[in-house]
Simulated scan of single mutants.
Amino acid sequence: MNGRVDYLVTEEEINLFRGPSGLGFNIVGGTDQQYVSNDTGIYVSRIKEDGAAAQDGRLQEGDKILSVNGQDLKNLLHQDAVDLFRNAGYAVSLKVQHRVQVQNGPLGHRGEGEPSGIPVAMMLVPLCAVAMAVAWAIMRYRQRL
């Protein structure tokens, strides 16, 4: 394994409706409280159970929020971002960046003679095809008798 971690980054528009406990998540970050090194962005730190975000299910802890109702969150102080969320109204549109870690190699060391880590499903498909071909050949052979 090369020790490098790869990520798949996607963006999504999420529309939430403010509930009794607000939007149902906490944020961290900002120009005055960087959550990620060399990044002043605003991140989701916690999804509140049974809140609007949890009920919607798409927003995840660790997601970066790029904009709120079309307003960019770049270069904001943390408190300014909090105020923006508080004053966003009942229907709130979030542009969110999801970052998912991608596995780029075997999970651990493999010794000689151990399985290669090929998923079972990848082996089952050709085996099923061979089994079906054999069954078909046997049925055709029996029909000729």
Rank of each mutant, 00 (worst) to 15 (best):
N2I: 13
R4K: 14
D6N: 07
Y7T: 12
L8N: 07
T10L: 14
T10Q: 14
E11G: 08
E13R: 08
E13M: 08
I14T: 01
I14A: 05
I14D: 03
L16N: 01
L16Y: 05
R18D: 15
G19E: 15
G19Y: 02
G19L: 08
S21R: 15
G22Y: 14
G22K: 15
L23D: 02
G24D: 06
G24M: 06
G24T: 08
F25T: 11
F25N: 12
I27D: 06
I27L: 14
V28H: 05
G30S: 13
T31K: 12
D32L: 08
Q33A: 12
Y35D: 13
S37Y: 15
N38V: 13
D39M: 15
D39A: 15
T40D: 14
T40V: 05
G41F: 13
I42E: 08
Y43I: 15
V44H: 04
S45N: 11
R46H: 10
R46Y: 10
R46T: 12
I47T: 06
G51F: 03
Q55R: 12
Q55E: 07
Q55F: 01
D56G: 06
D56V: 04
L59K: 05
Q60K: 15
Q60D: 14
E61D: 13
G62W: 09
D63W: 05
K64F: 10
I65E: 09
L66M: 14
V68S: 07
N69H: 05
G70Q: 09
K74P: 00
K74Y: 06
L77W: 02
L77C: 02
L77H: 08
L77M: 07
H78T: 11
Q79E: 15
A81P: 06
A81M: 02
V82F: 03
D83G: 03
D83N: 14
R86P: 00
R86I: 02
R86G: 10
N87W: 08
N87H: 14
N87K: 15
A88R: 07
A88K: 08
A88H: 12
G89M: 11
A91W: 02
V92H: 12
L94A: 07
L94C: 09
Q97N: 09
Q97G: 11
Q97R: 15
H98W: 09
R99G: 02
V100C: 05
V102N: 00
V102Y: 01
Q103H: 03
N104R: 12
G105I: 12
G105D: 09
G108Y: 03
H109N: 07
R110G: 04
G111Y: 07
E112G: 05
G113P: 01
G113K: 03
E114M: 11
P115S: 13
S116P: 01
G117S: 07
I118M: 13
V120D: 06
A121F: 10
M123N: 02
L124V: 10
V125G: 04
V125P: 01
P126M: 08
L127I: 09
C128L: 06
V130Q: 00
V130R: 00
V130P: 00
A131P: 00
M132E: 00
V134I: 07
V134F: 03
V134M: 01
A137D: 04
I138L: 10
M139P: 00
R140S: 05
Y141A: 04
Y141L: 06
Y141G: 02
R142L: 02
R142M: 06
L145V: 10
